[in-house]
């Protein structure tokens, strides 16, 4: 994607801090937020690049944080990556410090659960919208559908780890491309 103008560090800080402050639900909710803001609204990265970053991020553990790092790096190099990651973690860090302090002082968890229960359906809606958008642009043809469904089933019904699924998908796509080349 062509960058007409460099995105300012302040802008990166603001966007990822805001994502980190409101993305309750974590994990894929964060990813869906980043996709919505950075791919669709700001057009900072293309859908392909974003999904590549997500795939790498899932291989390395905390993928919500890793996706922030990836987008930040893409925009402004290492400084941008570290800034995006820090800005994203900062609100959670402040919140956990505050809650830990209350907890070790009063030995009770605050009643935030009902607020979270209200957000859950919205988080799910957010993730579904993101999946639909990604699917419309990236899942074309029977073979792609088969892979998407297999990945969905493996993760949703058999608790297979993302790492295993992505490695299998990589082998699958490599095998297919060789097969097609041989049988043209």
């Amino acid at each position: 994607m062509e960058q007409t103008q460099r995105v300012s560090l302040l802008e990166i800080l603001k966007v990822f801090f805001f994502i980190g402050a409101t993305g309750f639900g974590g994990g894929m909710a964060i990813v869906s937020l980043i996709e919505r803001v950075c791919v669709h609204e700001k057009k900072w990265v293309s859908m392909d690049e974003f999904m590549h970053g997500l795939a790498f991020g899932q291989i390395l553990g905390p993928f919500s944080l890793n996706t922030c790092t990836f987008v930040g790096y893409y925009l402004r190099g290492s400084v941008g990556g570290i800034l995006a990651a820090s800005a994203f973690i900062a609100p959670s860090f402040i919140l956990v410090c505050l809650l830990s302090w209350l907890y070790f002082r009063f030995h009770e968890l605050p009643q935030l659960q009902s607020a979270l229960n209200g957000t859950n359906p919205i988080i799910i809606a957010l993730i579904i919208v993101a999946a639909l958008g990604m699917g419309r642009s990236k899942v074309k043809g029977n073979e792609a559908w088969l892979m998407a469904l297999a990945a969905f089933a493996a993760s949703a019904f058999f608790n297979t780890s993302a790492l295993t699924i992505l490695v299998a998908a990589a082998v699958w796509s490599l095998g297919w491309s060789w097969y097609r080349r041989e049988h043209r």
Partner: peptide, 9 residues
Amino acid sequence: GLLPAVVGL
């Protein structure tokens, strides 16, 4: 090639 799997995830 593995992007459809990401969508599935």
